[in-house]
Design a protein around this nucleic acid. Sequence first.
DNA 1: TATATCTAGTAACTATTAGTTACTAGTGAA
DNA 2: TTCACTAGTAACTAATAGTTACTAGATATA
Lengths: 123, 123
Amino acid sequence: MKPDVYAANCPTRQILDRVGDKWAVLILLLLREKPMRFNQLRRTIEGISQKMLSQVLKSLERDGLIKRRAIATVPVTVEYSITQLGVTLAAAVDPLRDWAEQNLKDVLAAQRRYDSQQKEEAA
Amino acid sequence: MKPDVYAANCPTRQILDRVGDKWAVLILLLLREKPMRFNQLRRTIEGISQKMLSQVLKSLERDGLIKRRAIATVPVTVEYSITQLGVTLAAAVDPLRDWAEQNLKDVLAAQRRYDSQQKEEAA
DNA sequence: TATATCTAGTAACTATTAGTTACTAGTGAA
DNA sequence: TTCACTAGTAACTAATAGTTACTAGATATA
């Protein structure tokens, strides 16, 4: 049976929503490079708050995309790393990032066209 | 110069955010199949409200991913269709949808594992 | 000896966004 | 006469995102 992403109860849609999380994707791509600690992630990802980082890490761990390892140092450090499942998701995100980089100019141009059109109509 | 998606001001991140929009992706994939009217979209995509549909259609049009065409019928009908740029974005989203369909079981299993683990620790 | 900094978060609060519901106006059908 | 259809918009509420202050124990700095 083929899943219908347009049905509200479709679980595939839940996963698309999760990928839609702006921070989740960034964290996943970062952890693919190398494991990182909490504050290390916070410093690297500009604009993320402690709360959101904590929240998103938890949900990524819940989904089996990353794993959390507490190391008995003083103070305790926690290392986050990507799982095999996470690696495959990150790979599926790559085409999207590439698209964004390649088509950024076109999108910005379209926005400018649209905005000036709107201004004209308002006048 | 390589864009840094981890920098807050990176325009590529803006595009990732837009793709992150749960409704936008669904609409894009639908319009790739065939052009559709406003209420037709609303009926097909379960759970979307008039307001969100209107909002998302507007921003997709602004980004040059879809185009809007008003047809002089009575009452006026409006047809939305995907642009060439939109087609390329939809293609970049495909691997993601495929990933979701293929790995849904693993993700749900990971969630169950995590949740029962948490319950244990709470007890 | 105080003071600041580091660790990984949590709690309380505010701001922003998502979603709900009712409404527009003109026409055709039951 | 009342309902349904078209494509939205406006006002409101609910949910989520983001901000800020705080925890506790140790180490470095002045």
